[in-house]
Amino acid sequence: MNKALLILKREYLTRVRKKSFIIMTLLVPFIFAAMTVLPAWLAMQDDHEERTIAVYDATGIFLGRLGSTEYTKFHFIPEEEYARVRDDIKNSQFYAVLFIPPNILSANRAQVFSNKQVTIDIKNMIDNKLEQILESDKKQQVIKEVGVPDLEEKLAATHTHINVETIKVGEKGESVKSSTEIAMIVGYIAGFVIYMFVMMYGMMVMRGVMEEKTNRIVEVIISSVKPMQLMFGKIIGIGLVGLTQLLFWVIIGGAVISGVQAFAGGDAMQSVQSSHDLMSAPGMSVSSVVQEQQQNMALDIIDKVNSLNLWMIAVTFIFYFLGGFFMYALCMPRLWEQ
């Protein structure tokens, strides 16, 4: 057997049989899936803590207009109580104290006191509510001054949104839905994966060379084979380890994604079905419309991903991966010696 091939075989087999390689290969797709799904899932979780916020309104503009949600309530308090509560929030029944100063219109600021850090949701909610109320007051003022009663509706009607759809024209003149955004995301991810792989496996070559040098086995080996055979056997062997890992990631990742699709897709089909039922009935519910829109969007994305030339992407991916890897793998051990 050719000696370079023997070296390639050893480099490949010893690495593929390693426990760390097997664990990495099997686990990473799941970790990756968890990393993308978990934050989305966490973001979807609602905040169910009941909170009451004391409000001392020095202007009197906001009384009764803040409106409570299911879990967050606003309670207006007079000035004397405000001072007391603010100094001892911990022992009051309030989560926080909102102070609206008399000069809010000119200063554009209000203050929230609390003993614990206020959540971003609460802060944003208060922000929005105060802004909306003040804005609408100002608008009413302007409308009154101008004397055009339906000014607000007219202005709202001028609001315009244009959606540019990108459509690729296929070889036979057929139009294929495409998306610049999705093409960009796929490119970005592929680029990142190549970067990671080239680093990881280039380092692996360097470590392999270092191991042979520190072990001193290199002298025995290069008295048996030419250094070029050793180097190429090693680099190609390790490159194949990388491709093997990638192949498994694609297979496992594909299985995970199609599994999720089958699970979520079944759900979606049902909801589409039920929304169709509702459509036939008069007085369609708003939520089902939203659901259907989301469903359509998901199908659209899958459509657009499919419109990408996946074979082309795979081939160029492997080409750039190997190109980058060879360059890096050939350079790193040399650099290390300097």
């Binding site: 050893r10 072990n215 086995i217 025995v220 008295s223 048996s224």
Partner: peptide, 27 residues
Amino acid sequence: IGYLPEERGLYKKMKVGEQALYLAQLK
């Protein structure tokens, strides 16, 4: 030619038999 260098070593993580077989095949 068979060569036993002064500073010698083997692949630490490889099994003895497998390694001896590999080095013999390289020769």
